[in-house]
């Protein structure tokens, strides 16, 4: 029973970080209709950026998150027009090229990071997470509490932006109907850039959180990309509340598999669940995604 409670808490706390990882991706798919294959590499680069800021400038990893967010949001903002360009209607295989381009970018990032940073594992530690809570037999490490709380704050901020600000309203307009939004004077390519910038920035910040919780190397990109895809598909593509629920589900699944089976089964278990969801309800567990 204690093991069950402990792994439930662990799972939910990690789920909070996975929400940050998948919100941007889900929104980007909802608005741009493009799956970003480089998502795992943004995460990995976010963790490494925090690592180098920490080791060279001695900034606490947790406090690097605003810098990491701004830097990667800018990268996303300037990269998005390229994605828009290759998937514009006049070119051959326009519907495939967005996927192809982000796939190519992910390979370039992965290969050059392997060359520059090596294959070694790194980790981040923050003075702000240097505590542990005990509840009877249950142990809750500070890093998990703090990253969960930050994840929750970011999620609330993100939802506030999307549902309570004029700019967020325009994002939702483009997501629902691009043509009508344009007729009403919304610059949809501007909104697309903004959404992609948000996605890359948030993913990189999630990378810093992941770095505080686990070890990381240039090769972790693929694994976290799979987790992100899992969350986005399970929640229903483009449906944000679904992504939040699915992120918590994935956190719990990982935690239970690690506690009761073996952590080597995580990808396998994730795939089996993904497969069953696609068989039973392709629109995601809440049946609200885009098919």
């Amino acid at each position: 029973m204690n093991l069950f409670l402990q792994s439930s808490i662990d799972g939910l706390l990690i789920g909070g970080v996975l929400i940050v990882l998948s919100l941007g991706m889900s929104l980007a798919f909802g608005v741009m209709r493009i799956v970003d294959f480089a998502v795992g590499e943004w995460l990995m680069l976010g963790a490494f950026t925090a690592f180098f800021l920490n080791s060279n400038l001695h900034i606490d990893p947790l406090l690097t998150t605003p810098i990491v967010f701004v830097v990667f949001a800018l990268v996303g903002f300037f990269l998005q027009p390229l994605i828009e360009h290759v998937s514009s209607g006049k070119r051959a295989h326009a519907n495939l090229m967005g996927l192809v381009l982000t796939f190519g970018i992910s390979q370039v990032i992965r290969g050059s990071s392997l060359g520059l940073f090596g294959k070694d594992n790194h980790s981040l530690s923050s003075a702000l997470t240097d505590f542990t809570w005990f509840f009877g037999p249950l142990v809750v490490p500070g890093a998990r509490v703090v990253t969960f709380a930050c994840g929750l704050l970011l999620t609330l901020g993100f939802l506030f932006f999307l549902y309570r600000t004029p700019l967020g309203l325009r994002v939702r307009m483009v997501s629902q109907d691009k043509a009508s939004a344009s007729l009403l004077g919304v610059d949809s390519s501007r909104i697309n850039s903004l959404v992609y910038a948000l996605h890359v920035g948030l993913t990189a910040v999630a990378g810093v959180f992941i770095g505080l919780l686990f070890t990381f190397s240039p090769e972790i990109g693929a694994r976290y990309a799979l987790y992100t895809f899992f969350v986005v598909v399970l929640g229903g593509m483009g449906y944000l509340p679904g992504a939040i629920v699915a992120a918590l589900v994935l956190g719990l699944v990982q935690s239970y598999v690690t506690a009761f089976l073996d952590s080597r089964y995580i990808s396998l278990a994730s795939f089996i669940i993904l497969y069953l969801v696609l068989v039973i309800s392709p629109k995601g567990i809440l049946r609200r995604g885009l098919v």
Partner: peptide, 11 residues
């Protein structure tokens, strides 16, 4: 380097 070249070729 091969991974990088391959990725760049795709881009």
């Amino acid at each position: 380097l091969y991974i990088v070249v391959l990725g760049a070729a795709v881009v």
